[in-house]
Design a protein around this nucleic acid. Structure first.
Length: 227
DNA sequence: ATCCCGAGGG
DNA sequence: CCCTCTGGAT
């Protein structure tokens, strides 16, 4: 059941980002396969850059069969403007190979199956499940981790790096417990937006944050971190 | 310099 | 737990 605090935060986020509340991702894709590949490529990279790259990639390799037999150096060339492009080229080719071999060339719809694919961890799997198949889950990336920790929705708001209280798994579990299942997908997206635009890692714009009153990041912590 | 919707390996 | 991968934007 949704906590009072989560309910309030959920309402404020939807009010703050009304236009985006119908979206679930900014990654361009036209089917689950493209979403899977785009999400693997998006690790530590802006969506904008991924969207600049994937059209050429998908034009040449339309499905798992095509990509599974692709020449690695050709794929590397096509995605070379993306970080970790050698690792990612290998990941998407090998993942395509596994899709063809084990899943009838389709993207599987369970967490356990998805995370066996190279380049796919819980975060990527949750994006594919949520956006591609409307299966609820929290995709915990650096933004969701930071924002939900500061708000006091998950883990520890002090963001202790040594204690490692805020592991992605812990935060994912806490968020699932705090929010209604029907909101999991949209809230993870809105937390990411909020993290990018307002609750930034270095200099969060606390003065213009619509969640300021709900936030448990104490003024003491704020002052020491901002300074 | 630091960050981008991380994952895999030691 | 740590490290590495690794290009581009700001």
């Amino acid at each position: 059941m949704q906590s009072i605090k989560a309910k309030k935060i959920s309402e404020i986020l939807k009010r703050t980002y009304p236009l985006e509340s119908t979206n679930r991702t900014e990654l361009a894709h036209s089917n689950p396969f493209e979403l899977l590949i785009a999400t693997i490529l998006s690790a530590q990279c802006t969506d904008k850059r991924v969207n600049l790259t994937t059209p050429r990639l998908f034009k040449k390799y339309k499905d798992a069969e095509a990509l599974s037999s692709a020449d690695p150096s050709e794929v590397e060339r096509l995605i070379s403007s993306i970080n970790f492009f050698r690792n990612k080229a290998q990941s998407i080719i090998k993942a395509s190979l596994i899709l063809c071999r084990d899943y009838s060339s389709e993207v599987p719809r369970t967490m356990e199956e998805l995370i066996t694919l190279p380049g796919v961890g819980r975060k990527t799997a949750n994006v594919v499940l949520g956006v591609g198949f409307k299966i609820p889950g929290f995709a915990v990336d650096t933004h969701v981790l930071r924002v939900s920790s500061r708000l006091g929705l998950a883990g520890n708001c002090k963001e202790s790096k040594t204690a490692k209280v805020n592991t992605p798994e812990r935060v994912e579990k806490d968020l699932c417990q705090n929010f209604n299942k029907k909101d999991w997908i949209i809230i993870s997206y809105l937390l990411i937006l909020h993290g990018r635009r307002v609750c930034k890692a270095r200099l969060p714009d606390c003065n213009r944050c619509t969640l300021f009153k709900e936030c448990e990041w104490t003024s003491k912590t704020k002052a020491s971190t901002i300074a």
